[in-house]
């Protein structure tokens, strides 16, 4: 009893951490580093050879590879831009409306808006493909009913609209997530603070802009970075709606589909795991840089308030 246990090595920490560390290493850390390693090799005549950074030289130097890569990256930024421009403001707006104390059926709206988030990409992709189909879709007949048939176009099949359409579909699916996070942040703002503002004459909309918005800025930052990572890892929706060739004419090709085509191959094109890993490494670097900019450039400057 007299002896202190503090100086002994705490084995139970290791024991409790071990399962998580082992599983995480096996399914995340090892594959990640192995992919990075694979990018430094190539295969000729079924023999794997170390080639250093040659694959990156091909990816960025050979116009055939680099054009597809920059096209995919530009499309990816557009995809992200639409999300930031449409999904997050709408999410904040919905959260602001939902958190209004006098709104009736708030629980119902909250659930209804959140439900698409739990649907599978495949279901969302096919359902929207059918909705927008020029042949069987309800979009043309709905527009017809309000006399706007002339506005209808086969959006998913036109180069200039396809990517934006898909981005908006994705926004429709995921708008519930920023809404929920902001909603939670808004609920945690103490009543006293709003009442204090009211005494100083800040009510209604200006209470939102001057009190609530500064307080939820950290949550908006988190949502932005989640959107960034999610969008640059996106693949499923494009694959479900447009296939691996990301038509028309690669207008909807993003890094995920480009990686899939290269790594696993497509139709007569055989898979090339080494060039695929090179693309995966480039994607990893882009996401890492984006997250670092956020963490060191923005997060540290955000002011936090303690209640």
């Amino acid at each position: 009893m007299a002896e202190q246990t503090g100086k002994k090595f705490n084995w139970h920490i290791v024991v409790f951490l071990a399962p998580a560390v082992l599983v995480y290493t096996a399914v995340m850390i090892f594959p990640l580093f192995n992919t990075l390693r694979l990018a430094l090799y190539t295969e000729t005549e079924n023999i794997r050879q170390f080639v250093g950074l040659d694959n990156f030289r091909t990816l960025f130097g050979d116009p055939r590879w680099s054009e597809s890569f920059w096209n995919a990256l530009a499309n990816n930024f557009w995809f992200f831009f639409i999300h930031m421009l449409v999904q997050n403001p709408i999410g904040i707006l919905l959260a602001a409306i939902l958190s209004h104390p006098r709104l009736r059926f708030a629980g119902f709206y909250r659930t209804a808006i959140f439900i698409p988030t739990i649907l599978s990409f495949v279901i969302v992709g096919f359902a929207w493909k059918l909705i927008l189909s020029p042949i069987w879709g309800i979009a043309p007949s709905l527009l017809d009913a309000v006399g706007l048939k002339s506005l209808f176009a086969p959006w998913l099949g036109r180069e200039e609209y396809a990517l934006t359409t898909l981005a908006l579909i994705s926004v429709w699916q995921f708008v519930g997530i920023p809404m929920m996070l902001i909603y939670a942040a808004l609920l945690s703002i103490p009543e006293e603070m709003l009442e204090a503002g009211e005494i100083d004459g800040i009510t209604g909309a200006s209470a939102f802009w001057k009190i609530k918005l500064p307080l939820i800025l950290p949550s908006i930052g988190i949502i932005s970075i989640l959107t960034f990572v999610g969008n640059f890892n996106a693949f499923d929706l494009i694959y479900a709606a447009q296939g691996a060739l990301a038509g028309p004419d690669f207008a909807t090709d993003i890094l995920g589909t480009y990686l899939y085509r290269t790594f696993f191959g497509f139709q007569l094109q055989l898979g090339d795991p080494h060039m695929g890993s090179t693309i995966a490494t480039a994607m990893f670097a882009i996401i890492l840089i984006g997250v670092c900019i956020y963490l060191f450039g923005i997060q540290t400057r955000l002011r936090r308030y303690q209640f």
């Binding site: 189909s133 020029p134 042949i135 043309p140 086969p154 959006w155 998913l156 099949g157 036109r158 028309p248």
Partner: peptide
Amino acid sequence: LGDGFEAQT
């Protein structure tokens, strides 16, 4: 080809 063949699967 039919109307909207660009998006026809």
